[in-house]
């Protein structure tokens, strides 16, 4: 069964006029979460861009129940909510919606703990590859060579492979997604919601402000990440990796677009050397190789 736009609910969970920047990928992601699980979702959100996107108290630009929580706590709070709802007998899908900092860095111990306990929640890492809310500082998810306000000459380290780390937690469901492929993301969200235990979805979210590209190009940049093979869409049920349809053609290396196409439209890679470009290309091959071993 293939999901089409016609199958999606019309209810809006992201209101116009909220506080997101033009071209914000998180806003897109939240819309898709609404379409996938809207009426059942309860979100815990740590510090990050979505703290701002919601708009100002006592109002809100998002139609979800949301518990804003301290940075390193979103999965633990979500675990508590999930257990309480089970005890009460209420049908709810509890989602920890966190950025790359709240997931991979300051939030990592909490994430890993909840995953190991197999708490019945979905963690969505909305990955804009730097600490955007505080003004574009590098994170463990920033790629090699990228300019940030704490790596003026380009980041010297490579991106930590978080989906793989989560796969190694042997949780029932791990997936990657992209804001450029809403139907793929929505299907994964619904699948995740149908599985009991800890589910991890890593959502690639190109940020026009932090990556230095035209805000109208968010989706094109996200698409190029997939088409160049720099971002691989897959899902893994009980550890068995299946490459998702949008990424399938790029299993074949020759079908991938040159990564230069992806890098050159982003200001953050403006000053990378030939050497770093080679290194990034090598990383793409490596990441594919590693991932395909689990298919």
């Amino acid at each position: 069964m293939v999901l089409t736009i016609k199958d999606l609910p019309k209810d809006k969970y992201v209101m116009p006029g909220n506080a997101a920047c033009p071209g914000c990928p998180e806003n897109l992601g939240l819309k898709f979460v609404g379409m996938a699980l809207g009426e059942k979702a309860i979100l815990t959100i740590p510090a990050g861009c979505t703290s701002v996107i919601q708009g100002l108290l006592p109002g809100s630009g998002l139609k979800f129940p949301i518990i804003n929580v301290p940075f390193a706590s979103s999965d633990a709070v979500a675990a508590g909510v999930s257990v309480a709802k089970k005890l009460i007998g209420e049908d709810a899908v509890v989602i920890a919606w966190a950025g790359d900092g709240g997931t991979a860095d300051i939030g990592f111990a909490t994430l890993s703990g909840a995953a190991e306990r197999n708490d019945n929640i979905i963690h969505i890492c909305v990955d804009n590859e730097a600490y955007m809310n505080t003004g574009i500082q590098r994170s463990s998810q920033t790629p090699l060579g990228a300019w940030t306000t704490t790596t003026w000459k380009g980041k010297k380290e490579r991106k930590k492979d978080l989906p793989m780390i989560m796969l190694m937690h042997k949780i029932p469901y791990v997936a990657t997604a992209s804001v450029a492929y809403p139907l793929d993301f929505i299907e994964k969200l619904r699948k995740a919601a149908s599985i009991k235990g800890f589910k991890y979805i890593h959502l690639h979210a190109p940020c026009p402000v932090g990556w230095r590209f035209d805000p109208m190009k968010t989706v094109s940049v996200a698409k190029l990440a997939v088409e160049t093979g720099m971002w691989i869409l897959f899902e893994a049920i009980n550890g068995k990796v299946v490459i998702s349809p949008p990424s399938k053609p790029y299993v074949d290396k020759t079908k991938r677009k040159p990564i230069k196409e992806y890098l050159s439209i982003q200001g953050r890679f403006r000053n990378i050397t030939e050497e770093i470009l080679k290194d990034l290309e090598r990383q793409v091959d490596e990441n594919w190789e590693t991932l395909l071993k689990f298919t």
Partner: peptide, 9 residues
């Protein structure tokens, strides 16, 4: 849609 803890206006 109850929200706790977003930024105060």
């Amino acid at each position: 849609p109850l929200i706790m803890g977003n930024i105060p206006k």
